[in-house]
Design a protein around this nucleic acid. Sequence first.
DNA 1: GGATCGATCGGCT
DNA 2: GCCGATCGATCCG
Length: 184
Amino acid sequence: MPPKRLSRSFFTRDTRMVAKELLGKLIVRTYRDKKIAARILETEAYVGEDDLASHARFGKTKRNTIMYGKAGHAYVYFIYGMHDMLNIVTDKKDFPAAVLIRGALFVNGAPSGPEAALRGPGRLTRALKITRALNGEDMVNSRRLYVADDGYQAGKGQIQRTPRIGVEYAGKHAALLWRYVLQL
DNA sequence: GGATCGATCGGCT
DNA sequence: GCCGATCGATCCG
């Protein structure tokens, strides 16, 4: 089937459900009039102010304000002095939650290079030309960045859950199985 | 104002 | 497996 853009209602749901169902969907980036699409293989859920791994753990700040807004917007932040991270805001307005996109696989319009270029959240944004300039982008309406469903259906047993990466500081939330990985 | 550290990556030991 | 890069957000005083 032809790729169909995901709507607001897809994102305005429980974050872990969205994180899981984003697996296999296409992230579509239009850059310099060229469309690049990649199948999402890895996501993580960040849920509410109580989640000690989330940027929202200190409450609403200048950086994380977008997480408190309407679902379907991009939350792109800069970290470690060199990486931009792509998240998609989820759940209801005023409840801070998002899904971090950690890995994908080119399906067309691929620049030259190995598929490994999209493994890891920092490599993914670099390959797809995603920076803080896209922070706040409404992916439900944007031409530059959105998510589409081309009918790919993950089979049972293709999805793994693991603890989230790089959040060892998060106490009891470090061990939660809120990372989702799709095995193609 | 100053110190700390991070939702990472790549290179080297 | 460890470490440096690199800088802005956040916290503490």
